[in-house]
């Protein structure tokens, strides 16, 4: 049925206006090239993680770390009993462990959130 002399119709498409893959985002190129901007990205991640770590350690020091000093200054605390158990035993034998686990859990959640923020920042092609 095709008429001679007239070529078959073909779909014509242009190249995609914006390539969605294969282009490395600018921010990671800045970090790889070790430019000043790349150093800013890195120090923001490092500072954020270090502040988080310091916060957890300060919390540890102010709760568990001060106990010897408290018992040194107020030795009669060790004679106080809760349900028959001396307070030092309750604190150091039992309660300290769930507290350490809670601190660790908070840290892991926040540290992973910091890393997600960093990935969003660096992998986003719109980031300068």
């Amino acid at each position: 049925m095709s008429e001679p002399g007239r070529p078959a119709r073909v779909r014509v498409t242009g190249p995609p206006r914006r390539r969605t893959s294969g282009v490395r985002p600018t921010a990671s190129r800045e970090i790889d090239a070790d430019t000043e901007l790349g150093a800013v990205y890195m120090s923001s991640l490092l500072g954020e993680q270090l502040r988080l770590a310091a916060g957890v350690l300060v919390a540890l020091g102010l709760t568990v770390g001060v106990l010897p000093l408290v018992f040194h200054l107020f030795p009669h605390l060790s004679e106080v009993r809760v349900a028959g158990v001396p307070v030092p035993w309750l604190l150091l034998g039992v309660l300290v462990y769930p507290w350490l686990l809670a601190l660790g859990w908070i840290y892991v959640r926040r540290a992973e959130a910091n890393e997600r923020d960093f990935i969003d920042l660096v992998d986003d092609p719109e980031t300068p």
């Binding site: 770590a53 150091l92 034998g93 300290v96 350490l100 840290y107």
Partner: peptide
């Protein structure tokens, strides 16, 4: 007595310090 409870507390807390400063 109770001052020796610091050994297990320290051995566990050491992992918290390790977690926040060096693990990853």
């Amino acid at each position: 007595g109770a001052d020796m409870l610091w050994y297990p507390v320290g051995w566990t807390a050491g992992y918290l310090v390790l977690l926040v400063l060096v693990a990853a």
